[in-house]
Design a protein around this nucleic acid. Structure first.
Length: 370
DNA sequence: GAGGCGTGGAT
DNA sequence: TATCCAAGCCT
């Protein structure tokens, strides 16, 4: 006897492509229909879009393209300029790898991106997803770009019970089997557009989906239950003190963080260590210079991917000739916007100085009882 | 392979 | 407010 499951249809890539031709998003890094985008632009956008929303990337992408129009221009730029242009986008190792990758493309590939997945994979900052995405989108190589969108779409269409990330190999195999030989680049972008606009994490618009009929999860009414994932627990709160020093010539004391690790290569006012048991009343002992320190009311809170941070802000004014400690520098307050300041540190400076000129940092709300 | 690594928007 | 999570990579 014929069961419904036995007669289930398979997802047809051509149905998806037909949908894409009518509903594709118009994005700054995307070429017009039928035209292949420049590899440099595809690569730049893909790096920026790693774990980052289209809305957040858009202005940064346009700024980068203006300041670094070609891979050669990016390769020749000073590292500081690249980090400064990236400041605020997050995941700063991407910026360092972006610069290193541009140099490698110029030095080892004559300024041309390699066109195969395997060669792209060797470049810094390019992993399995990005290698496949660039190969498919910029060179129309038959590569399967599997990102979070694709994982969600495939998890639902094939109703994959195995949780992520263990299901990744299976999802990759299923996706590879669907990539059409004629339009691999469009297929990659089509699945991502589908995931971003129709097959969304919450309340997917199944009625508008070109793959509604073959979707197994939809057939069971369980689309929102997929993909299954194993979740990890939240990180422990860390506390510390940040030291904002205003010199009489209207300059601020800053330092650059080590190139590796958290906020690597970014600028900051000096801070104490960040620890779960940090006691703010000991902050003066961690101060970078001797001064009449004032503990400002309230705190600055910031949430990183793997832990929340609460900083007490210490403030001091010092006289004009005060030297900067080793590995620190004085930056004019009016030039703070030219520094590579991550969001957390912008909050600290805004807390102490008021809103930054040219910056969009928000000042922290006053704390009750402060 | 599990954890480190930012930020801002949606719910 | 809390939680999730968005076109992942590296170690």
């Amino acid at each position: 006897m014929l069961t419904p499951a036995a007669s289930a249809t398979k997802p047809d890539p051509q149905d998806l492509l037909a949908w894409y031709d009518r509903h594709r998003r118009d994005l700054p890094w995307r070429a017009k229909p039928g035209v292949t985008a420049e590899p440099y632009r595809v690569w730049l956008s893909e790096i920026m879009l790693q774990q980052t929303t289209v809305a957040a990337v858009r202005p940064y992408y346009l700024k980068f393209l203006e300041r670094f129009p070609t891979v050669e221009a990016l390769a020749e730029a000073p590292a500081d300029a690249v980090m400064q242009a990236w400041a605020g986008l997050g995941y700063y190792s991407r910026a360092r790898n972006l610069h290193a990758c541009a140099k490698a493309v110029v030095d080892k590939h004559g300024g041309h991106f390699p066109r195969t997945e395997a060669e792209l994979l060797k470049l810094p900052g390019i992993g399995a997803y990005t290698a496949a995405a660039v190969a498919a989108i910029a060179f129309d190589e038959k590569a399967a770009a599997v990102d979070g969108n694709v994982e969600r779409v495939m998890s639902r269409v094939f109703m994959i019970e195995e949780p992520l990330p263990k299901a990744k190999p299976l999802i990759r195999a299923l996706t590879e089997a669907l990539v059409p030989a004629d339009r691999p680049g469009d297929f990659a972008q089509a699945v991502m557009d589908l995931g971003a606009t129709i097959c969304t994490p919450k309340r997917p618009a199944c009625a508008l989906c070109p793959w509604m009929v073959p979707c197994r999860a939809r057939a069971e009414g369980l689309q929102e239950a997929f993909p299954k994932k194993q979740k990890k627990e939240a990180g422990q709160l860390r506390k510390g003190a940040a030291f904002v020093v205003l010199r009489a010539d209207d300059t601020i004391l800053l330092r650059t963080r080590p190139p590796q690790g958290l906020l690597g290569g970014m600028a900051e006012p000096p801070t104490s260590p960040w620890e779960p048991d940090y006691e703010p009343s000991r902050a003066v002992l961690d101060a970078p210079i001797e001064a009449r320190w004032q503990r400002l009311p309230g705190t600055v809170r910031h949430v990183f991917t793997h832990f929340p941070l609460e900083l007490t802000v210490m403030f001091a004014k010092v006289s004009k000739g005060t030297p900067a400690p080793d590995d620190m520098r004085w930056t004019p307050r009016l030039q703070l916007h030219e520094e590579a300041l991550p969001g957390a540190m912008k909050k600290v400076l805004a807390h102490a100085l008021g809103d930054l000129p040219g910056g969009k940092a928000k000042s922290e709300k006053p704390v009750k009882g402060a």
